[in-house]
Design a protein around this nucleic acid. Structure first.
Lengths: 200, 200, 200, 200
DNA sequence: GGGTAATCGAGACGGTACGTCTCGTCTTCCT
DNA sequence: AGGAAGACGAGACGTACCGTCTCGATTACCC
C-alpha cells in the first residue's frame, strides 16, 4: 500500500509550490506597501521573479490571484469557548473577532469585499466560502444558547445578519473603532435582542 | 449697474448644463446596462457626444464623475412619519428604506461603496456627505423615542450602527431579500434591543 | 483661395509627422544593427520614445509598419536614359538597378520579400504597390525598343518576368554578385532574347 | 553474428519513427490548412499527440523541423529526356518542372525559401543541398546542347540563373501561372537567348 | 531478470513580444 | 473663448510561442 499516496499525482511537472506562496505573499505585500491599486500581475511577476505566464497558469485572472492570496488570511476564525451564557459567548466571540479585524485580517477582508463588489461571480464564492464560516460560528453560538433555553431561534438567519451586519459596517466604513469596549457593548445589546425573540 | 447680478459669473463661456446632466445619466445607464466595469470616461464621452476634455473640465477624475453621478440618486431618503411608537417609526423607516434600496438606489449605493473602498479619500467624503444623512434619520428617530421615555440612549452612535449595519450587510452581500417582512422583523428586534439599553 | 488646401484636414489632433518618420527610421536602423528579428514594436517604441499605442494608431499591425518603413527605401528607381538602343537602355537600367541593390535597398527588398512570403495579403500589396513600378520601367524600355522597330512584344508580361526574374533570383539567393559585369552580360543576353521574339 | 547490424544502436529506448513521420506530416498539413504562420511547434505537438520535448529531441529548433519536413517533398526533379534539340530539352524540362511546382512541391519550395531568407546559415544549405540539384539539371541540358554544337557556354553559371530566375520569380510572387503555354514560351525564348551566346 | 539509459506524455517554467485597453493630458480646428 | 475630435505617454491587461526543465512511466538493450 505504498504507492497509493502518490498515485493521485497528476501527470506533468507539478507546480512549484514555493511560487504559489511567493505570489500570494507578494500580492499582500504590495497592498500593504502601496495600496490596493498597486496589486498588479506585472508587479507580482517582477517582484517574485515568476513569469506572468506562470501566474496566469495558476490563476485565470488577476482577481483570482487576489482573492486566493487574501482568502487564507481572511479566514482566521476565533475559537468558540463555551462560557456557559450567551452573553459570555458573544463577548468572547466579538472580542476575538474584533482583535483579528484590527490586524491584517481586517485589511484583507476589506480587499476581498472590494473584489466581491466588482465581480458578482466572486461575490457568490466569497459568501459561500468565507463569510459563511463566520456565520456558522454565530449560528452555533446561538444554537447553544437555544439548547440551554436562553432564547428561541427564528426559522431563518436573520439573527446572524443582525450580529455580523454591524461588525462589517464598522470594518468597511471605518467610522468607529473595533475595540474591546465596543465588543462588550455589542455583546450586551445582542444578548438582549436575541433573548427577546419569539418563535415565528 | 448692469453687471452686478451676473458679477459672480466667471469669465468665459459657461458650462453647458445639459452636458453635465447627460454625462451623469450616461454613467448611470452604463452601470445598469453593462455593469460596473463598463463605466468608463471613454464610454461616457462616446455615448453622450461630449468630448473627453469637456468631461475632465468638469470632473477632475473618473471617480469624481462617478460619485457625482450617483450621489443624487443615492441620497433619496424616506420621510419620517411620527407613528407614536419606536417600533412603528422603525418599521416605517425600514420599510421605506428597503423599498428604495430594492430599486436603482440600491445599486447606486453599492457602486458608491465600491468606489469608497478603493479610495480612502472618497470614503471619508462618502461617509460625511451621504451616509451621515441616513444615520441622522435613525438618530432622530431614536431621540424621539428617548424623549417619549421609551428608551435610554448611549453616549455614542452605537445604536445607529446596530440598526444600519445589517441593512448595508444585506444590501452589499445580497444574501437575503430586503422585503417588507424583513423590515418588520428588523424593526421588532431593534425595538427590543433599543429598549433594553441602559445608560452608560 | 487660401483655405482649400487645408480644408480637407480631418478634425482632431493630427498625427505628429516627426513620430511617423522616427518610427520608420527606427525600424530600418534596427534591421541594420541587429537583424530582422530585432524589428519589434516594443523596440521601436522604446527607441523612439513613442508609445506603443501611438504606433498601433498609425499601423494596424507590426507588418504594416515594416512594410511602410521599407517601402520608401525599396522604391528607389533608376532613371531611364534613352540611349537609342535596347541594349544600351537595358545596360543602363541594369547597372543602375544592381548598384542600388548592392546597397541598403537590396537588404530592404529582401526584408519585404520575406514578409510577403509569410503574408498572402501583403504579397498582393507588395506586388501591386512596389514591384509593379520596376516592372513598368522594364515595360517602358521594351516599348521604346518596339517603337523603334528593334523588336516585337508579346501580348503578356512574359518578357518582364524574364528580365527581372534573374535579378531577384540573385538578390534573394545571393549566389552571385550583382556587379557591373553581370549587368552588362544580362543586358546583352536579354537584348538577343528580346529581339528574337516573334509576335504571338 | 546476429547483432552486428543492430550493433550500432545506441543504448536506451529508441525514437519512435512513426512520430518522426507524423510530425513532418503535421507541419505540412498545417501549412496547407492554415498557412505558414500556423506552423508551430505547439500546434504540431497537439495535432500529433507528440510532446514538445519529443519534438525538440529530434529537431533542435523549429526551423530544423520545418526544413526537414519540407525538404523531402521539395526535391522532386524531372527526368531529362534527350529530345535531340535544346529547345525540345528545355521545353520538356520546363513543362515537367512547372507541373511539379503547381502541386505541393511548389508550396513546399516557397516555405523553404521563406526559411532561407530568415536564416543565412540555412540559405547556404538550401542552395547547396536543394537548389543546386535543379541548377545541375539545367547545366547538363546546356552542356548537351553545347556538345551538339548548338551553342557556346559562358565560363560561369549566368545562363542557369537566366533560366531558373524567372521560374522562381513566378513561383514566389505568384503573379502569373506556371502553365504549359508559359513553359513553351520560356523554352523558345531561352533557346534563342542561349544560342546567341558568344564565348567570353 | 535486473540494471542502465534513453525514450515517452504532460505540463510548468522564464522570456519576450504581441495587440488591446483605459487613464488623464495635450493639440488641432471649428464655431 | 468653448467644444469635438482625437493623438499622446504611461502602463496593465491577457495571450501566444519559443525552447528548457521536471515529473513519473515506459521501453529497449545489456549483463
Amino acid at each position: 500500500m505504498l504507492g497509493y499516496i502518490a498515485s493521485k499525482m497528476p501527470p506533468g511537472r507539478p507546480f512549484n509550490s514555493a511560487h504559489t506562496a511567493a505570489a500570494r505573499t507578494a500580492a499582500i505585500d504590495l497592498l500593504e506597501e502601496q495600496g490596493y491599486a498597486a496589486i498588479t500581475m506585472e508587479a507580482v511577476a517582477e517582484r517574485t521573479g515568476i513569469s506572468k505566464q506562470a501566474l496566469y497558469r495558476r490563476w485565470k485572472h488577476k482577481r483570482h490571484l487576489v482573492v486566493d492570496a487574501f482568502a487564507e488570511k481572511a479566514d482566521l476564525l476565533p475559537d468558540l469557548p463555551d462560557t456557559g451564557t450567551l452573553q459570555g459567548d458573544l463577548q468572547a466571540f466579538l472580542r476575538a473577532t474584533f482583535s483579528m479585524l484590527r490586524g491584517t485580517c481586517g485589511m484583507t477582508n476589506r480587499v476581498l469585499f472590494t473584489e466581491a463588489l466588482q465581480d458578482p461571480e466572486f461575490l457568490l464564492e466569497f459568501r459561500e466560502r468565507h463569510l459563511i464560516r463566520r456565520r456558522r460560528q454565530v449560528s452555533a453560538l446561538l444554537q447553544r444558547a437555544a439548547d440551554r433555553g436562553e432564547c428561541d431561534l427564528p426559522a431563518d438567519d436573520t439573527l446572524v445578519d443582525l450580529v455580523l451586519g454591524p461588525v462589517w459596517y464598522r470594518l468597511l466604513l471605518q467610522n468607529a473603532p473595533l475595540d474591546e469596549a465596543t465588543a462588550d457593548k455589542f455583546a450586551k445589546y445582542f444578548c438582549h435582542l436575541v433573548c427577546s425573540v419569539e418563535p415565528t
